[in-house]
Nucleic acid binder design. Structure first.
Lengths: 350, 350
DNA sequence: TACTCTAGTGCAAACGTTTGCGTTATTCAA
DNA sequence: TTGAATAACGCAAACGTTTGCACTAGAGTA
């Protein structure tokens, strides 16, 4: 077939007009300066000769690439798949394309990934891997390239964000466990330098306090990462120091999974020994051996909203105040939570 | 910070030398034409002033973008995550970046995605969503842009491919079931226009034949797609027409999952009523309610190999004969398969 | 008729690189 | 001492667009 890509100039000489006219005729905005007749002829020829705009030349000229970067913490965490789909779904409508990168939950890796993306000239970045203090937001600001945070946010304000009401989610989780009769409730937290794990933990102690349940320190243990492995290790120490707990909330579905494995290692089962509720409602969760009660977040919608927000910020004539969209979580009850079983009461020694 | 990106010219005037010298000093290849002293000074200044090559200008000049496109059939299928990671891992070493797109298992969607990628000027494409006859390969050929197929291949030859030995995998699966004493074995196939489902089905009947087990037509039913939903529907009809089957092989883990749901709808359980083996060993499978015996494919390695292959093909001085790398599958035995339970024999009426 | 105005188009610069070629200055051989 | 060879660098074109400006011709006005 055609070995060489056909260019604007090719079209121009073929039609015996100037390349600038061709350019204008093809552009939706400036085609109105051109006589309708010429526009029609140009577009027909472009169609026939298979003209495709050279993205590099366009980018070089106008300074925008019509591409963005997406950075997620972990490619293996299925929860990000629907988020990415949501992003794509709106990107497609506007002719944008996305680079996908992941940080392996590593701050400096994320930083260099963003640097690479910026060097590629992306028009904006959707960042789902933020730490509470994160150099990426300064990096983007210094290059004045639009950034929107999804799910994980950052302490420092002045950034566009799309997040879910984590506190509300935890309230729901606690409420559910209380309804089931649980009182001795633990919490497996994620690293404190990530907003979601920080906020969820805080919401936990607060909600408990509102129900006049003071939570003692040994009821809380922090996993070193929001992964299954992190959950497993944390759960081991939790079980060691909480022989009496009847329920726990995990900061994350993945952590909850880790709790399961630690539990079976100790020879216990869920929800018989302990009820567990997770967070995120990641895909395929209902297939699991112990279907996990969890807090569902609107993944796809989060993706959509963040893409819309970013596109809006990329638009040069957008107002310049930051937005924060807050989405509602939902409680999904499955089989990992059950009513507390009444054990034979010790007679108080008094 | 710096509002405007610093360019080669900025560096040049700052150092009172020509931009061509700066360009050469920065380039690994041509820096040897420049005196070591100058090279050092240029690189130092570039570092300090935060110079980043303008990707668009580079692409426009040399005609290569150092980016590739990845197309997978389904973002929600976890099996592609490790493949993509494998691709990224080698891409990173060579300064390449990847666009990620998905086709929703739709041929025409895949075609337009590829067109978009080509129009973006990607240097090559890794295509994991191929049908047995697929317009994408002609599209790429006509634009003379490198293409490598992963996992799913195409009937027409002359394409670089990375695949696993599906036939061997099925042999293993059949062998495993035979060892367990099964003889009445069914097969839930995927759509015949996808190489993997076609080959796996063919391997099934062949292997059975080699063991002197003729497989009757009703033992095979074809799902309309390689998804859980497709598996569920197919399994319903399978159960209807196979009251005596004791085992089956699913073309896909997702299909196997669908079989599970249909099974429970019928009030049966696995492996008690029927043993099931899947294919792919997708992530998180060992967590499932019925841990699925399956054929494991080397996901990460498949990604690596395909990226290596593509990069090699992109290299202008590569030889021009196509390569086909074939990887070995592995049998993973879990709890969805069990020895056949001997039912009370009907006495032959003769 | 002479003038201004406007719609339609062409000209050429610019975006930031890379690279073939030309120009110097230096080295080496004879 | 002269010549050629080499090393180091500068010049300028080119990649394919977009866009401000200049230009032309025809329409409208007085």
């Amino acid at each position: 077939m055609h070995r060489k890509r056909v260019t604007l100039r090719d079209l121009a000489e073929h039609l015996n007009i100037n390349t600038s006219t061709v350019s204008r005729a093809l552009s939706e905005k400036s085609s109105e300066m051109i006589s309708p007749d010429v526009v029609k002829r140009v577009r027909k020829a472009a169609q026939e000769m298979g003209y495709k705009q050279n993205a590099a030349a366009y980018a070089l000229k106008v300074g925008r690439t019509k591409s963005i970067g997406i950075i997620i913490p972990d490619m293996m965490n299925p929860v990000f798949a629907p988020i990415v789909r949501g992003i794509h779904s709106v990107l497609n409508q506007y002719g944008y394309t996305a680079f996908l990168a992941y940080s392996e939950n590593n701050a400096s890796a994320a930083h260099t990934e963003v640097e690479k993306l910026i060097s590629r000239g992306v028009d904006g970045i959707i960042y789902a891997a933020a730490f509470r203090t994160d150099s990426v937001v300064d990096l983007c600001k210094s290059h004045s390239i639009p950034l929107v945070l999804v799910n994980r946010v950052v302490d420092q304000g002045n950034v566009d964000t799309v997040k879910v009401d984590d506190s509300l989610g935890i309230e729901m989780a606690v409420g559910h466990l209380l309804d089931l009769g649980h009182r001795k409730i633990g919490f497996i937290a994620g690293p404190k330098n990530i907003s979601v794990s920080y906020i969820r933990l805080r919401a936990f102690t607060q909600t408990m306090a509102e129900h006049d349940l003071e939570v003692e320190p040994h009821r809380i243990v922090e996993a070193h990462s929001l992964t299954e492995e992190g959950g497993e290790k944390a759960m081991s120490v939790f079980l060691g120091q909480n022989p009496d707990a009847t329920a726990l909330i995990a900061s994350n579905d993945l952590i909850a999974l880790g709790c399961f494995t630690a539990l079976t290692q100790f020879g216990y089962t869920c929800p018989k020994r302990i009820s567990i509720v997770g967070f995120n409602n990641m895909p395929y969760l209902d297939w699991f051996a112990i279907p996990l009660t969890t807090i569902s977040i609107p993944h796809f919608q989060m993706g959509e909203r963040s893409a819309e927000l970013l596109l809006k910020r990329i638009d040069p004539e957008s107002d310049d105040h930051y937005e924060e969209v807050l989405l509602k979580p939902k409680l999904i009850i499955r089989q990992s939570t059950a009513p507390v079983i009444r054990r034979k009461k010790k007679i108080a020694s008094t």
